[in-house]
Nucleic acid binder design. Sequence first.
DNA 1: CTTGCATGTGCAT
DNA 2: TGCACCTGCAAGT
Length: 272
Amino acid sequence: MPEGHVIHRLAVALTEGFSDRPVRVTSPQGRFAGSAELMDGRVLIGAEAIGKHLFIDFDAPLAAPIIHIHLGLIGKLRLGPPRPVVGEVRLRLASPELVADLHGPQWCRLISPAEHDAVVEASGPDPLRADADPDRGWQRVHRASRSIAALLMDQRIAAGVGNIFRAEVLYRHRLDPFIPGKQLKAATWRAIWADLVDLMAYAVGTGRIDTVRSEHDPELTGRPPRVDPHGGEVYVYRRAFQPCLVCGGEIRSQLLEGRSLYWCPRCQRRKS
DNA sequence: CTTGCATGTGCAT
DNA sequence: TGCACCTGCAAGT
């Protein structure tokens, strides 16, 4: 259940753990069996993330030497010491010291370098990548009638942002989630972007989404941390009917384009 | 045991 | 806008 920071962490861990040597590639569950055989025993070159897409490059004389994984809503990739297979493992990468087990991915397939490039080009700018150009996102935002809350879930606008970062970054900027994108000022977009870069990089470093940090919000200095069930400290995400940490008002939630949006109507009144 | 929910996406209508 | 899909986990019966 990952936002982009999880995928970037996985890319780093896979590269550190497996690169430059042959890797056993199997499909205990069987659904990736034919493809796993093609890669089994080949040297893993490295892994890369863009948005929520994960690519694992192998040194193989094949048209499609790249494993392309998208975890979707429920997928998991677990790294750890060698262990028996537990549950439905679609793909296992293994060295003598390390195992990576893939469960429930939305996609797991072999792709060519050209297909890899097409995914990268179709993706919006990723706040976690140095090559990201936030103006590409702004070009879509500033002419959109959809709400800024809906736009932030659009991977062509800011790749890797998911439901948590969406809710939290809107809160941190005290923005009304329902204003249309075209109503947003360019300076506000730049501030949101800079905040995403900061918040997501922190999450890559720690493996947690902590958005309530006193260095960003002097109002909260000295307040004891409250960690929410997903494993981070947040203002509004999954806090419906609880009191806002800042104003004490009730956090609300509603479905927006099929996903739960969380916000504080009292704090989030900015309209541009 | 069963049900419902989850950090997501793509397809059909 | 709704739904199917992939799986694990927690809560309820």
